[in-house]
Nucleic acid binder design. Sequence first.
DNA 1: TTGTATGCGTTATCAC
DNA 2: GTGATAACGCATACAA
Lengths: 340, 340
Amino acid sequence: MARLAGVSQATVSLVLANKQNGVVISDETRQKVLDAAQELGYVPDPAARSLAAAHNNLLGVFSFTSTFPTDVRHSYYPFLVGVEQEAAARGYDLVLFTGSSSGGAGAQAPEALGRVRLADGCLFLGRHIPTDQLRRFVTEGFPVVHLGRRDELEGLSWVGADYVSASREVVAHLAASGHERIMLIRENDEAPASTDRERGFREGLAEAGVDGDAFRSDDPAGQLTAQRLRGWLDNGVTAFVAEETDTGGAWRALCAAVSAAGLRAPDDVSLALLGSPPADLAADPVPTGFDIPRPELGAAAVRLLASLVAGEPAPEPLVACTFRPGATSGPVHRTSQGDS
Amino acid sequence: MARLAGVSQATVSLVLANKQNGVVISDETRQKVLDAAQELGYVPDPAARSLAAAHNNLLGVFSFTSTFPTDVRHSYYPFLVGVEQEAAARGYDLVLFTGSSSGGAGAQAPEALGRVRLADGCLFLGRHIPTDQLRRFVTEGFPVVHLGRRDELEGLSWVGADYVSASREVVAHLAASGHERIMLIRENDEAPASTDRERGFREGLAEAGVDGDAFRSDDPAGQLTAQRLRGWLDNGVTAFVAEETDTGGAWRALCAAVSAAGLRAPDDVSLALLGSPPADLAADPVPTGFDIPRPELGAAAVRLLASLVAGEPAPEPLVACTFRPGATSGPVHRTSQGDS
DNA sequence: TTGTATGCGTTATCAC
DNA sequence: GTGATAACGCATACAA
């Protein structure tokens, strides 16, 4: 104990804590303590410290899938970049709860989720965290933040990308290029990420005063065929936007149909993707659309979590996406059909 | 406190510790405690637990550079894949100490390194961890494992790739293809990773009974020029191996010289790389050489660390690399120079 | 087999 | 300003 080295005792705490809080300490003893600590390489035991202080500067990160999957494409890496930076900036260390990746079935969940309380608060990644598991945390007041919009649980904090604004912006871009009839290709899925995009799409249409509608590419009622595509084109549609999903299904279907119809973007038709293209898809040409600032999302999540932990007012949960001009959209061309 | 839920008190410790140590426990009360813990989502405070001189199932991960750098190419991701899997398999959670990435200068080191003791043991990544900082941990008996060979500190545990065997294997492969004179292109650096490769190279030469020597590509005495390359070829050298480094300097220099000499591999000369090619280099053709099994290295590090924490005998610290046939080496061709 | 006391190293609250 | 002292939550040896 450094006390022996110096002449003081738990005064050490004060000088090491370095809080200008209330009282002050003489420069002499302060230096004495500092020197002694340096000499002995003394560092306050973090365990004891957190025991006494009721918080341990630890932020949890929990995902039900492996945090570092073998397949990099599925990884949370881009988010983690921001998470780590922001946590470091705020003096928090990260606890990665691995209970999730045990893979095996069985009693993983209860034990694993319980461990989470070890941290001052916890960040949850991935779409598959059971709502009722999270409910316990929020009702007990344990600080929890979900990365990705999550509306079904009252009181659950989350951060998410502002798909509405970003989608609106894409539509505005197309409208500015002269497109007056735009179709949204989406999947038959009611996830917030999908509905947000459609909402932004429709808001964009309204604001620009252009026409358009949404089509569900995997609706059993009808596939997205080249024939259907041609039909739309004959009806005055000159641009298509597709939503981004895990699988990229809508975008793939759109590209396939365009290709099957013998059309090319942006010459024959303008295409846009409400998100980033799937990694396995050749990003050539780069689709018009927007990028999700994943690191910034991670950072925002940490900011929010830190606020909850500290009892401060919560910051803005929506993070803006960045517009990507791309090369699949351009001014409207009137080739086959006559002008109005 | 779970005591209220159950009928017991600190018996909780016993059942939760689950030590088959000596004797004790009744199935009835055990279940009662277990149920209560489940109900309340109770988890022993890791701080209190480690204070009370136990362990907290936490393994630290510390790097002086950011664990998740913005530039993925510098990242520890491949190692972390193995680290996470192995830690999960053994029931450990991971603490990522971010003190490293604070970036700022100043008093980061003492505070940051001290926090590490919150975990049961710590894994250190990166080449830049100061020896004297680590020394304290090993002398104090705090379990520490360094990812990467580290010989200068007695008693410091580490795991590393077996560059010696892997390099020897590459040489053996070349020799088996008929090459009888092989040059090693290395950088002017005395890192273990470099000396190990040269040692393996020389052992390989000796075993195969072939000739060869090492050349330092960045030695001020002489650059690796096309002219020098031609000189070697005229002297009967038919194959070159280059070491892998952070920058890939040796391999780049070798490729540049070969190209400048108007030669092509494997037709005119055989090339091999003692490691993996730099990510920014077109991996076409894939160089003959070996791959470092980074996930396996991470897993091995966790295994070793877990052994230290548990006081068990330490497992093998060397991880085997995997030979990569590649397409830059082949049977020896005698084109310009006469046969012997 | 289970309940009862003690101490781990800090912080925080008081008297000095 | 500085020196005691009570928790903090758990493990552990010990008594019941």
